[in-house]
């Protein structure tokens, strides 16, 4: 382990790039989350009906229909062939996320993300144990179970409990007791399972992960040779397993983070002092030498 890994997270990046530089994508991401939420709130709050509906389905400027393809997939399995408007909307959403990375939805749009990020922040502050860490395949099991229940009951099953739409619909249309689901997710991430909801359970994220499996926009460990082993990227990444193959790959291997689990949040770019990471496209084939051994601090054998 590097001596630098003892420093607080992003300390070096802040020194090198300034606080703003070391939080660029985090700030942009929060701005994006607020932006997408505000779009939906302009109508009910200010009577400005640019965007109607919610994240499950919406109509923008009375012309652009958007539909959550995961909701529509459940409807399809429940035995219904949706009308053309919904299909068009789902096709647009699916095409966009297939290009820019499915889980971009998770980190840049989803209203639950700030909730689980807050839980994670508090989790670190309180120095809690990581708790239950489900196996990697868990989310796929949950995903399959949701689709199966939809098919068996003939309903859009996940929408009865989906905290993402419960929260979003609550904000745009009125909560009822939907906030209970949001608090439940917060507590789950805080005390039961660190990063548990978004990284291990949520079938919406799983769906978008699969959707973006071949996405064009990707984070690349382009200057991995400069990595100084501070481990900050691993510490901030919500899906740290995606970094390893790119960052620790050998000379011939791709520096692109190709896993569909990566949410393209860009936080690794922020916290890296030697600027190892950058946004790149899938077909980027610039030669990227591997990390050099000299970066490793040898532990003297006594």
């Amino acid at each position: 382990m590097s001596v630098k890994s003892q420093l607080p997270i992003a300390a070096e990046a802040i020194r090198e790039k300034g606080w703003l530089g070391a939080h660029r994508f985090l700030i942009l991401r929060r701005a994006s989350q607020v932006f997408f939420l505000l779009l939906f709130l302009l109508g009910p709050w200010f009577g400005l009906w640019w965007v109607k509906g919610n994240l499950a389905g919406s109509l923008t400027f009375d012309i652009l229909p958007l539909t959550d393809p995961f909701v529509l997939l459940q409807s399809f399995l429940a035995g219904h062939w949706p009308a053309a408007t919904a299909l068009t909307g789902a096709a647009i959403v699916a095409a966009v996320y297939a290009l820019i990375g499915g889980r971009v939805y998770c980190s840049w749009v989803c209203p639950i993300n700030p909730v689980t990020d807050a839980a994670h922040w508090l989790h670190n502050k309180l120095d809690l144990q990581k708790g239950w860490q489900p196996k990697r395949g868990t989310r796929y099991w949950v995903f399959a179970a949701v689709l199966l229940v939809s098919a068996l009951t003939g309903t859009i099953a996940w929408e009865f409990v989906n905290p993402v739409t419960l929260l979003h619909r609550g904000l745009v249309f009125g909560f009822g007791f939907a906030w209970v689901a949001v608090v439940a997710v917060f507590l789950f991430d805080l005390v039961v399972s660190r990063r548990g909801w978004c990284a291990h359970v949520c079938p919406v994220g799983t769906f978008y992960g699969l959707l973006g499996e071949a996405s064009v926009l990707r984070v690349s460990a382009a200057r991995r040779a400069d990595c100084d082993d501070c481990l900050d990227c691993f510490a901030v990444c919500p899906e740290p397993h995606v970094i390893t193959p790119a960052l620790r790959g050998s000379d011939g291997s791709t520096p692109l983070i190709l896993s569909g689990d990566c949410t393209n949040c860009g936080r690794c770019i922020d916290v890296c002092a030697p600027a190892v990471f950058e946004f790149a496209h899938r077909f980027d084939s610039r030669p990227t030498p591997a990390r050099r051994e000299r970066n490793r601090v040898e532990v003297p054998v006594s």
Binding site: A56, G57, S58, T67, G154, I156, G174, A178
Partner: peptide, 25 residues
């Protein structure tokens, strides 16, 4: 229940505010 995606577009376009989306609980 297998077709409605709970988007609320019908609620928004009802000129008399007759419709609303059911709130949990």
């Amino acid at each position: 229940l297998g077709t409605c995606i709970r988007c609320g577009l019908c609620v928004r376009d009802c000129p008399y505010d007759t419709l609303s989306l059911a709130e949990l609980g």
